[in-house]
Amino acid sequence: MSTATAPAAKQAPAPGTPRPDGSRSVWHRVKDFEPPTRFLPVFVTFALLVGMFGVGGARYDGFADPQTVLSLLTDNGFLVVLAVGMTFVILTGGIDLSVGSNVALSTVIAAKTLQMGWSPLLVVVTVLVVGTVLGTLMGLLIHYLDIQPFIATLAGMFLARGLCYLISAESIPITDDTFSTWAFSTLVLPGGYYVSWSAVVALVPVAVAAFVLASTRFGRTVYAIGGNESSAMLMGLRVASTKVAVYAISGFCAAFGGILFSLYTLSGYSLNAVGMELDAIAAVVIGGTLLTGGRGYVVGSLLGVMVLGLIQTFISFDGTLSSWWTRISIGVLVLVFVVVQRLLTRRQP
């Protein structure tokens, strides 16, 4: 850390320099550019992804094909959206265990209301509202009653799962025409490649979240809370509303992911997405976000989801491996990343 910033520290603020650093020549700026160490974990995840592609391409025919990436997105779009919401929560130093159940609840509500003949748009809005309200309620509990995020969202997890059964214990197929059209419509890219529209839609929250976290005061507040909550409060930041908002965002993303999931499976079932919250957390951690909060990027979480998906692709390409190897590799990866992060952060004073 200190070695990386030392040269910059000598140059930038040098008092009495005629030109403030904003007006330095392009060449100097390029020459002095050093990627800040805080991006390092994201680079590591990206390198891992590229490496996995290389190995896969060398071992299996048809692995190193752009279509593999596009299929990854198609198969994991909902998880991408969940990971986005989870990134907000984890950046503040919290956790949201309710997202998996929230996804199931969303699919059940969507299937049930469609069965009752509601218009698809109304269904989507209803699902998003329910998910957001659930998230907001947990946020209120966590901030105002000072309840551990783990416990509050654990309660939310059971509540949402229970509500699923209340609506329907059986799996409800989705036969609505509009939903089917959405589910099957694909975007055909030049070269004969294709990706489902729902996967493309899943990238929208990533872009929005990346902007919000990097360039808005709300985003800064999220990082500040993760850095030191009481300091953030004393600095006059809106800690209360921000903390509630991140859980609302996570709830919204879970509902959004739930809609994508119902498109993916074209059904609503109370046993959907069991344990998916843990996949989302794993993706965020593999993407380089610190579980203690304050450090991490949404792009990392996207890459984390891709890594998880790629492990699955590996196993299906191989054909001889048991699918439990997915879980084992995810476990090992999460462990390695947490240990590496620990080592990286411990070096700092």
Partner: peptide, 27 residues
């Protein structure tokens, strides 16, 4: 000291009143 250690010096100084262009922070 009541600042947040994970942000940069400038981010800490300007936290909550960053100069913005159309809602986006002008780094």
């Amino acid at each position: 000291v009541n600042l947040v250690p994970n942000l940069t010096v400038a981010e800490n100084m300007m936290l909550g009143r960053e100069p913005r262009i159309a809602g986006a922070i002008n780094t």
